[in-house]
Design a protein around this nucleic acid. Structure first.
Length: 136
DNA sequence: CGTTTGACTACGC
DNA sequence: CGCGTAGCCAAAC
């Protein structure tokens, strides 16, 4: 079972997963978190709540690195998590719209339509991740 | 080295 | 729907 030995490794795993998100689709912090198995046995739901913030932290650290489609990760409510009107929020929205993602008048993305289904089970297995969590 | 701050989420009203 | 709340924990201060 995959266990992040340290925060840096955890971030690497987050980036690895985020790079799998296809253009024109979006994922959520919680969904990404749910694909990274916890050391202890918790339910995917518990784990999502526990670690979603780590995903945000990992993406923040990725901004300087680039090469990572950070714009494709939004919150569970389908909204951009940067402060509305901030330059980062505008950049994220612009990037997503250029990929074909549509925002409602309220500034939300319909996850039923644009939500990423997740990576193939085989891919998760290859990465040493715990398949059951990703689809729970 | 203690305190505050987040790119979070589920839940109750 | 929107708003407040508790739980979280690495980072930043």
């Amino acid at each position: 079972m995959f266990v992040p030995p340290n925060p840096a490794a955890y971030y690497e795993t987050v980036w690895l997963i985020v790079r799998q998100i296809p253009p024109g689709t979006v994922s959520t912090y919680g969904q990404v978190a749910s694909m990274i198995p916890p050391p202890e046995a918790t339910t995917p739901d518990q784990y999502r709540r526990l670690r979603a913030r780590w995903v945000g932290t990992a993406l923040r650290h990725s901004l300087s690195t680039d090469h990572i489609p950070w714009q494709r990760v939004i919150n569970a409510q389908g909204q951009i998590s940067f402060p509305p009107g901030s330059s980062k929020a505008q950049e994220q929205r612009a990037r997503l719209e250029s990929e074909g993602v549509v925002f409602s008048q309220a500034g939300r993305v319909n996850l039923r339509v644009f939500g990423w289904r997740g990576p193939a089970e085989a891919w998760l297995t290859e990465q040493g991740l715990w398949p059951p969590l990703a689809f729970a």
